[in-house]
Amino acid sequence: MVNNRANKQQAAKGQTANKKAGSGQVRIIAGQWRSRKLPIHDLDGLRPTTDRVRETLFNWLANDIAHARVLDCFGGSGALALESLSRYASYAKIIELQRTAAMQLKANLNTLKCDKAEVINADTLVVLQNGCDQGFDVVFIDPPFRKGLAEKTIQLLDSKGWLNDGALIYVEIEAELTQMAIPASWQPLKDKTTGQVSYRLYQYQAEENPANTEE
């Protein structure tokens, strides 16, 4: 009887530990996977974009997300990339440094039977430094706060050929970060602040080649 009681206590502790290890969920708001809830891990620096902010963002992107090539620079929970794919984005590249989060992203894509996404478990700045063969139409920059990553990411996207002409770029940063260098080719479209979070939408306009400019 003592052994049975000890075993039950140990099992209960194990269940509690499991809940703590991966206690979160991300909910897809709209599209083909509307209201689906997917598991996420409770990891340091993982800060899923809230439903309220995502609703605002995807209202901004309502006419541009279908058939778009999407780049999620800091995948985290995958909330932004998954929402885009649910709303019929044609492809999503998701970069995530933490291996556990990257593996969970792959598992969630498998659960959704989605073959239109690629998860890269790597340092975002290293990946962006290497450039790409084909640009993107919608880009999400939602890095861990207070690490100076947003501005470095912006500069690499602009200089390494990641953006198609007319690309829309979403930036989510800490509200107190009021000064940030933005390329002249990025035109501000929208911005809001909710609590401690500031979020903005820009549009990239490629510079005209002077040789092709009509007099």
Rank of each mutant, 00 (worst) to 15 (best):
Q98A: 13
L82N: 03
L177R: 04
V139D: 02
P210N: 13
F74C: 09
D133R: 02
A167K: 00
G45C: 11
C114F: 07
H67M: 11
Y91S: 09
R54W: 08
R99K: 13
K190I: 03
Q25M: 12
S159F: 01
R52S: 11
F136S: 01
V139T: 05
T124L: 07
D165N: 13
F140T: 01
L163C: 05
N7M: 12
N59G: 13
T153C: 10
R34Y: 09
Q32K: 12
G14D: 11
S35F: 08
R36S: 11
E215R: 10
G78K: 03
R47D: 11
T213V: 13
S86H: 04
D191R: 07
D133Q: 12
I169C: 03
Q196R: 15
A101Y: 06
D42Q: 14
A17R: 12
V119W: 07
I120C: 11
M103Q: 14
K19Q: 15
A181N: 10
I28D: 05
Q179C: 05
N164G: 03
L163D: 01
E118L: 15
G22V: 03
Q104W: 08
L61F: 06
L82H: 03
Y199C: 00
P144W: 04
Q98K: 12
L61E: 02
G45R: 07
E118C: 15
I95S: 08
A117T: 09
G24E: 10
Q134G: 00
A68Y: 03
I182G: 00
A17Q: 13
V197P: 01
W60G: 00
L168Q: 04
R52P: 08
K192H: 10
V197T: 14
Q155V: 07
P144V: 07
W33Y: 15
D191M: 09
N130Q: 14
G148C: 06
I29C: 09
K113M: 09
K19A: 15
L125T: 07
A101D: 08
R87G: 02
L109T: 05
E208L: 09
N121W: 11
D115A: 12
L128C: 09
Y202K: 04
I28G: 05
K190Y: 06
G131L: 08
C132F: 00
L61W: 02
Q15H: 14
F74E: 05
P39H: 12
L105F: 07
L82G: 03
P188W: 02
L105H: 06
A150N: 01
A17V: 11
Q9C: 08
D158L: 02
F74V: 07
A81R: 03
I29A: 14
D115S: 11
T124H: 07
V26F: 05
E55D: 14
S159K: 12
K152H: 09
P183F: 03
V119R: 06
S77F: 04
A101G: 08
S198E: 00
Y199N: 01
V197G: 02
Q203C: 10
G166F: 03
N164Y: 01
T111D: 15
L85Y: 06
